[in-house]
Design a protein around this nucleic acid. Structure first.
Length: 817
DNA sequence: TACAGTCGGGG
DNA sequence: GTGTACGACTGTA
């Protein structure tokens, strides 16, 4: 996961405070009947569920914060379809192997075959053995078709009991803590829900959140409520004992860590083994920590590295450095995802939203008793270039008209692709159905089923609705209301589910994917954008730019009613909701850098009438841009944002250049801290595999030389120390190993600064050389304006600050030697 | 100039 | 438990 340094530097404890428990109090209806029984009732939130021999362990957290470990049974089935004789043979093999299963005949609907099949049902009543039984049976005859055979026990348990993680439940348990009955009285689609009073422990290494796997050493810092303890120790055994004491005494429900998966937990476990100290990371002492090794995989055309994971039993461990998009939607978003996807919290935190939407599709199928196909893990076959183009004729783009435009309106279709799937019933099994010929997809002519509601639309409908309602609620609340942020984070989690849903339709390996459905969605989308364009132009607007689901239009002196009318007309004509994102005082569509005559889509910035700034594709939006440059560019746009029109924009250019000069002065004076100059990039391969000596390769090799094992897909962070140095190793340095001997290369960062300024004026045809010339001239004229005295020697300030920190660190960093 | 390597978009 | 894209852009040789 890409981690922005800004986020990384935020203290975990602060971050943890984002958690909001501000929902309505948790109340149960009055209990009317009193039964004479030895059973007791527990009310609380469903916290976790996992298989053990003979059944499931189920954890509940009650309103007082107590954790209850309960047991439940779980009987599930998987299905086999094939030729009668082969099924018969399979049954005999299963009987001969004395597998603990029950065999039945069953009928179930297969979406893709559009038929009810007669199948062999294999019933298993020990969830811990399902995986092995499936393995054995499929090995007997791999050529048969298997269904419902690769769903996790936890998910099946949630489906069977009709519950979800964090659902408020009332259970009845006997004296052995066996669950006899479970009542859930809340829907996962409830907007306002209460969460249990979690006890949270944070774990990190003291200091900045640098990657400990890249060679940084620091003592362990444990956060509990508002206090922080640093476990400094020369004696690891003593340190472990103190940590264990804290664990037992505080008994946290959640351990939130930074680098816990890849570093802290494995070290603690290893030390505990070595020194024979008990370590109660799991609440359930009978279970081992669930370990999954690190791996690299492809996603969105790039390689991603995922560190090993350590999943706990009876307690959650969430590593914010190894949690998918958690910086985006926080713990609130993660909890929301767990509730609506019915995937346990620790899993949902670590996997992409792609598997989240896939889980929701499975739940829909399960609810309807439709067969769930086995997900093959075969890598997708290589496609030729032609095939790629043919199958991926994606969204429609109209190139922008380069320049600085005044009074531009942006219209956006709301959640365009998900809405298309839902409204037009696009689903893998509804496209090209044999039964309906009267509904045709534009351009393609595919038919769409009218008789059956599709799996995807059924899955998406409540999600789309909930997201819209959260966005609406957030809009209505005042800016400082904490609930507003909560709603926004939940809506953001939904957004990612919706976005990946479309992607998954076109992915061959997806359980419910079909390329024709993907194409159909795209075709509806292109059609809608074209209709919107026509409607706008008929009303005298000029279209400046359009991309997939947004369009930018201009008409001098257009009134609010005009915009209201046009959005209504487009919504009516396309049957898709479209809204006015806003009206820009001005917006700059930037030219290509390689060919200044050419426009590029998605490189623009502008200011709405309410003062809000929107930018895409420019340096400040890129994750590899150092914070110094990002802030510099944002500051400059802030200066420009005070301009109401083109003329004022031009007037502000002077102020932007003055601001730039100040920044350059500070840069050359050595006043910028290293942390602000860090470049953060992904490695697409292992360090040795690089052919050229660019900075990434140099730093990767430096780390390698220090014994750091770097995998493809990992992120490295470095500062440019001497860009044009003869010896490559002098050119840049990993942040983890910057020391007092190095300063940053002010000249190089100055060049980059000039480039970020140039971007802002490129729509006016201004070249970097022109900007550079002016900046150089101004810097040579110190008398022209007051400037701060340069400290001497140049690097004194940050050097001093850094050294003290280093010394401090080295003196204390003994724990994980 | 050719080639190598990385990033964003979506909201 | 996962999208082998695409084009823009920067940098090296």
């Amino acid at each position: 996961m890409a981690t922005h340094l800004k986020n990384a530097l935020t203290h975990l404890n602060d971050w943890n405070h984002q958690l909001i428990f501000a929902d309505s109090p948790f109340e149960y209806p009055f209990l009317r009947c009193v039964e004479v029984t030895m059973n007791k009732q527990i009310e609380g939130w469903l916290f976790d569920a996992y298989p053990v021999a003979g059944g499931m362990v189920v954890w509940l957290l009650d309103g007082e914060g107590r954790a209850h470990q309960l047991r439940d049974t779980l009987t599930t089935s998987f299905f086999v379809w094939g030729e009668r004789g082969e099924l018969h043979t399979l049954c005999e093999q299963i009987r001969a192997a004395r597998l603990p299963v029950q065999l039945k005949r069953a009928e179930r609907y297969d979406l893709f075959q559009r038929a009810t099949l007669e199948l062999l049902e294999i019933v298993v009543s020990d969830p811990a053995r399902v995986a092995n039984i499936v393995k054995t049976v499929t090995r007997f005859n791999p050529n048969l078709t298997y269904y419902n055979c690769d769903i996790s026990s936890a998910q099946l348990y949630f489906y069977e009991r009709n519950v979800f993680p964090l659902a408020p439940v009332r259970v009845e348990v006997n004296e052995q803590n066996q669950i006899c009955a479970m009542d859930v009285h809340e829907s996962p689609w409830e907007l306002n829900y209460a969460l249990p009073p979690f006890k949270v422990m944070t774990l990190k290494l003291e200091g900045d959140l640098l990657n400990p796997n890249h060679g940084v050493r620091a003592p362990l810092e444990v956060g509990l409520d508002d206090s922080t303890r640093v476990l400094v120790d020369d004696d690891p055994r003593e340190m472990l004992l103190r940590f264990q004491e804290l664990l037992v005494a505080y008994d946290p429900d959640i351990i939130v860590s930074a680098w816990g998966d890849s570093f802290i937990l494995p070290r603690l476990i290893e030390l505990a083994r070595k020194y024979r100290v008990p370590l109660s990371l799991n609440r359930d002492a009978t279970r081992d920590i669930q370990f999954r090794p690190a791996r690299s995989y492809f996603s969105y055309g790039r390689i991603v590295y995922k560190t090993a994971s350590h999943v706990l039993c009876g307690r959650w461990h969430i590593d914010r450095e190894n949690a998918f998009l958690i910086d985006d939607y926080g713990l609130d978003g993660t909890f929301e995802l767990a509730r609506i996807t019915q995937v346990p919290v620790q899993q949902v935190a670590r996997t992409s939203t792609g598997s989240g939407i896939s889980a929701m599709e499975m739940a829909t199928a399960y609810r309807n008793s439709w067969l769930i196909p086995w997900q093959k893990r075969e890598p997708e076959a290589w496609k030729t270039a032609d095939e790629l183009i043919a199958s991926d004729k994606g969204g429609l783009v109209f190139q922008p008209i380069v320049g600085l435009h005044e009074e531009v309106a942006e219209l956006d279709f709301v959640s365009m692709f998900p809405t298309i799937m839902e409204k037009f019933n696009v689903s893998p099994e509804t496209v090209n159905c044999p039964c309906c010929g009267d509904v045709r997809v534009p351009e393609l002519g595919y038919s769409i089923c009218r008789k059956r509601r599709g799996l995807i639309p059924e899955t998406l409908a409540p999600l789309i609705e909930k997201r819209v309602r959260y966005k609406q609620l957030a809009r209505e609340l005042p800016k400082d209301d904490p609930l507003r942020e909560l709603y926004k984070r939940r809506a953001s989690a939904h957004k990612w589910l919706l976005v990946t849903c479309f992607g998954y339709l076109g992915y061959k390996n997806a359980r419910f994917g079909k390329i024709e459905a993907h194409e159909a969605v795209n075709a509806y989308g292109r059609d809608a954008l074209l209709i919107a364009k026509e409607i706008a132009e008929l009303r005298g607007f000029r279209m400046l730019h359009a991309i997939v689901d947004s369009l930018w239009i201009h008409k001098a002196n257009a009134r609010n009613e005009d915009y209201a009318e046009i959005t209504r007309a487009i919504s009516d004509a396309t049957r898709l909701p479209i809204q006015l994102e806003g009206i820009y005082n001005w917006i700059a569509f930037l030219p290509s850098r390689q060919d200044p005559q050419m426009p590029v889509a998605n490189r623009y910035f502008g200011v709405f009438r309410d003062g809000e700034i929107k930018m895409r594709g420019i340096e400040a939006r890129r994750s590899d841009t150092p914070p110094f440059l990002r802030r510099a560019q944002v500051e400059m746009i802030n200066v420009l944002a005070t301009a109401k029109n083109r003329a004022e924009f031009l007037e502000r250019a002077r102020d932007v250049l003055l601001l730039t000069l100040d920044l350059l002065d500070r840069l050359h004076a050595g006043q910028i801290p290293f942390a602000d100059l860090v470049i953060s990039q992904h490695l697409s391969r292992e360090p040795q595999a690089y052919k050229t000596n660019h900075l990434n390769a140099i730093v990767a090799k430096e780390l390698l030389g220090r014994g750091v094992n770097l995998a493809a897909g990992e992120t490295i962070r470095y500062v440019i120390t001497e860009y044009r140095a003869r010896a490559p190793s002098d050119r840049a340095r990993a942040v983890e190993h910057l020391d007092g001997l190095y300063g940053y290369d002010a000249a190089r960062y100055a060049e980059l600064t000039a480039r970020t300024v140039t971007t802002l004026f490129s729509a006016l045809g201004v070249k970097q050389t022109a900007i550079q010339k002016r900046l150089d001239l101004a810097r040579q004229l110190p008398a022209a304006r007051p400037r701060p005295a340069l400290p001497s020697p140049q690097m004194e300030l940050p050097l001093f600050a850094w050294q003290t920190q280093q010394t401090y660190r080295m003196n204390r960093a003994r724990v994980f030697a």
